[in-house]
Simulated scan of single mutants.
Amino acid sequence: MSTSESDDKPKTQRRTAVKADDDPKEEKPATQTAQTIEIYPLRSYQDAGEIKRRGGPGYNAPKRHAERLIAAGLATDKKPKA
């Protein structure tokens, strides 16, 4: 193979390394994205097989699911005062 043949091939671009912080599969519990909303239970209810207790800790839920819980009066997106 001569050098002129290798020059005709398209050169590949250098890939940049992905940092661990940029991993979209990694979910951080304290981080809130546009797809999730942190909600706080106002009443006790079962959600995804877990019982969420009135006055319990807040948790992240998918936006549409959280909006349904808020509309039903079961949860709020505002942190209740202790």
Rank of each mutant, 00 (worst) to 15 (best):
M1D: 11
M1T: 12
M1H: 08
S4F: 14
S4I: 13
E5H: 12
E5F: 12
S6L: 14
D8H: 09
K9L: 13
K9I: 10
K11F: 11
K11P: 06
T12A: 14
T12R: 13
Q13R: 13
Q13M: 08
Q13F: 08
R14K: 13
T16E: 14
A17H: 08
K19L: 13
K19E: 08
A20M: 03
A20V: 06
A20C: 02
A20L: 07
D21F: 14
D21A: 15
D22G: 06
D22E: 12
D23P: 01
E26C: 10
E27C: 04
E27R: 05
K28N: 06
K28S: 06
A30V: 07
T31K: 06
Q32Y: 02
Q32K: 10
Q32A: 09
Q32R: 11
T33S: 11
A34R: 14
Q35K: 09
I37E: 05
I37L: 09
I37W: 04
I37N: 02
E38M: 15
I39K: 00
P41T: 02
R43C: 12
S44F: 01
Q46I: 10
Q46T: 15
Q46C: 08
D47F: 15
A48L: 15
A48V: 15
A48W: 15
G49D: 02
I51C: 03
I51Q: 09
I51W: 06
R53F: 15
R53G: 08
G55W: 05
G56P: 05
G56K: 12
G56I: 09
G56M: 11
G56V: 09
P57N: 15
P57Y: 14
G58N: 00
G58H: 01
G58V: 00
Y59D: 08
Y59A: 07
P62H: 08
P62M: 06
P62E: 04
K63Y: 04
K63H: 08
A66P: 03
E67C: 10
E67R: 14
E67G: 07
E67V: 13
R68L: 15
L69S: 01
I70P: 02
I70S: 00
A71Q: 07
A72Q: 11
G73Q: 00
L74H: 08
L74Q: 07
L74S: 09
L74Y: 09
A75P: 06
A75D: 08
A75K: 08
T76P: 03
D77S: 03
D77V: 01
K78N: 06
K78Q: 12
K81D: 01
A82F: 05
